[in-house]
Design a protein around this nucleic acid. Sequence first.
DNA 1: ACAAAGTTGACCAGATAGGTCATAATTCGC
DNA 2: GCGAATTATGACCTATCTGGTCAACTTTGT
Lengths: 137, 137
Amino acid sequence: MNISARCEYACRAMVELALMQQNHDPVASSVLAERRHIPEKYLVHILLQLKRAGLVQSVRGAQGGYRLGRLPEDITLLEVVQAIDGPVLDPLPVNDGQSLDLRAVWKETADSIAGELRQISIREVADRAAASPMYYI
Amino acid sequence: MNISARCEYACRAMVELALMQQNHDPVASSVLAERRHIPEKYLVHILLQLKRAGLVQSVRGAQGGYRLGRLPEDITLLEVVQAIDGPVLDPLPVNDGQSLDLRAVWKETADSIAGELRQISIREVADRAAASPMYYI
DNA sequence: ACAAAGTTGACCAGATAGGTCATAATTCGC
DNA sequence: GCGAATTATGACCTATCTGGTCAACTTTGT
C-alpha cells in the first residue's frame, strides 16, 4: 500500500504546471523534469497517460509543451492518482469471492481514502508550494 | 496502492482465529488455510510474521496451532496491516527529499488511512461474519 | 530546411510478490 | 521410546511489475 513513483512524478508535474502556467505558454516536458527532478525520458510516458485522461493538454512542435487540461482548482489529487495507478485500493487483492466480511472493510477504507484525495486540488498543493518556495525544491 | 495478498490472508486468518477460539484450543494452520481458502504452505510464513509481531501465539507439536495474541477486540486491522506490509503509505515512494509540498499531502493521507484502520477491530469483523455465515464463505 | 518538441512502442534490468519444498525442532498420544 | 502431528526456518523458483532508457516517427515554429 504505497504511492508509486509514477504517481508521485505525475502529481509533481501537475503541480508544477499549475505554478508555471501564468503566461499560458505550454511548458516543455524537459522543463518539468528539471524543475521537479523527474527522469525526463520517463516523464513523457506519464504525461501521455495524463493527457489520455484529459488532465493535461499537449501542444506539438517547436515551442510546444503541456498545459493543465482544466483549472487547477478543478483537478483533484484523486483524479491524478486514479489516472496513473487505476482505482484506489481496487480491483481487490485476492479476487476469489471469499471472505466478503473483509471485502466490505476494504471497500469502506477505499472509499475513505478516495474521499480524502478528492478534497485536495492541484491548486491547493501549488499554493502551499508558492507560499514557501523552499518547500518544493 | 493496494492490499497485498499476504495482508488479505493475514487478516482472514486473524478473523478466523477470533471465530474459532471459543474452546481455547489452538487452531492448526491447516485448518485456517482450509476454512479461509489460503494456500497452506504460504500461510505458515504469514503466521510466523504475525507471531513475531505478537498478534498470535503458537503452540508447537501435535495438537498445536495458533491463538490470538490478545483479545480480538483489542487487535485492530491497522496492527495486522502494519505487521505484514510495514508502515501504511510509508516509507515514501521517491525518497529524494524533493517536493515537500506533496510529501505533506501523502503524510496527511497516510494518517487518515491509519486512523480508519485503527478503528476496526478483529472482533468487529468477526462479528459481521458470525452474523451472516454466508458472509465469509 | 532545420531544430524543437510531442508520440509511440520496443526493450531491459532489478525488485517484488506469491508460492513451494525440504528440513529441522517440538510435543502429544500410545 | 516411537511415530504422527505440527510449528519454525530458510532456500528456492517463477511470473509480473516497476522504473527507466532508446530509437524512430510526427508535428510545427522560425
